[in-house]
């Protein structure tokens, strides 16, 4: 209804990112493209959508993902050994887009994007209806590197909040597009202190912007997703790695459906 109303009144219709936050607390899930195969990635995305995942982040593999733990690096290296390239990632997205309209965002380190060419990369994102891009090693200070070309192609750049300082959080939130990805320093807080810190961050964010915010707490079980949903608009989770043989013997579908449906159910209860 609101979609149509906006249309009639001449406003830009609700973006796919905005729509991802219309179904209760949002579940945002990440997977590396091409691990273990291209086909598995496409199938995973469709299964996750079916299980209620609201927004899917697709990682472009990089040889040295220093912002992630080694487990993610291994996933990236498996995908690279499978011949995954930026062009191959776009080919995967093209296939997904033929079957699904699920909100998609890309996650990358800057170097593969730089090499592909910023203009070429973001125009391809625009063509394939990639809704946003998050770049692991592009903090606020360096965002001009891609901000103009991203805007021109109507692709949101997702900002990360990892600071504990109001000034920086305000600075980032004020100029943020799409949604905010909060990654607190979980090691620095225990128990209730983490919850208090997140609440404080959300208050600071809300003073600056209305765009949604999700929390990334290295979530492995639905219980952990509750805190993210309690304080913010959604939770960020990793799609569990499923080895090639599970895909081959047909066990993969059930695993993904069950894992993601459990997460989404927990979020719905919040």
């Amino acid at each position: 209804m609101s979609l149509q109303l906006h249309g009639i009144e001449g406003f830009k219709s609700m973006s796919r990112i905005q729509s991802a936050f219309q179904n209760g607390k949002a579940l945002v899930a990440f997977l590396t493209v091409g691990d273990p195969t291209k086909e598995a990635t496409i199938r995973s995305v469709l299964l996750m959508e079916q299980a209620g995942v609201d927004l899917i982040q697709l990682g472009i593999p990089f040889s040295d993902p220093t912002a992630e733990e080694t487990q993610i690096q291994e996933s990236n290296l498996r995908a690279l050994r499978n011949g995954m390239t930026v062009d191959e990632v776009f080919a995967v997205i093209k296939e997904i887009r033929e079957k699904s309209n699920v909100p998609l965002l890309l996650y990358s380190y800057l170097n593969p994007v730089f090499h592909y060419g910023y203009e070429r990369f973001f125009s391809r994102c625009g063509e394939l209806s990639v809704d946003a891009v998050e770049i692991a090693d592009l903090p606020f200070e360096e965002k001009e590197e891609v901000s103009l070309v991203a805007k021109k192609n109507e692709v949101d750049i997702i900002s990360v909040i990892a600071s504990s300082k109001q000034k920086r959080i305000a600075q980032i939130a004020k100029e943020a597009t799409g949604f905010l990805h909060i990654i607190p320093a979980i090691n620095a807080y225990t128990g209730i202190a983490l919850e208090r810190e997140l609440e404080k961050i959300m208050v600071w964010i809300r003073k600056e912007t209305k765009i949604p915010a999700i929390v990334d707490l290295d979530i492995r079980i639905p219980e952990q997703a509750k805190l993210a949903a309690w304080v913010a608009d959604g939770a960020f989770v990793l799609c569990p790695y499923i080895a090639l043989d599970a895909w081959e013997n047909g066990q993969a579908d059930g695993k993904i459906l069950q894992y993601m449906a459990n997460m989404k159910n927990t979020l719905q209860e919040c």
């Binding site: 090693d137 200070e141 360096e142 990360v160 990654i183």
Partner: peptide
Amino acid sequence: QKGRFGQFGGQFISEKLMDELLC
């Protein structure tokens, strides 16, 4: 720009480390 040598240098690092780098 800050921390640049011509076009080179910069602070292309995870936001997770920015508080500490600024400090």
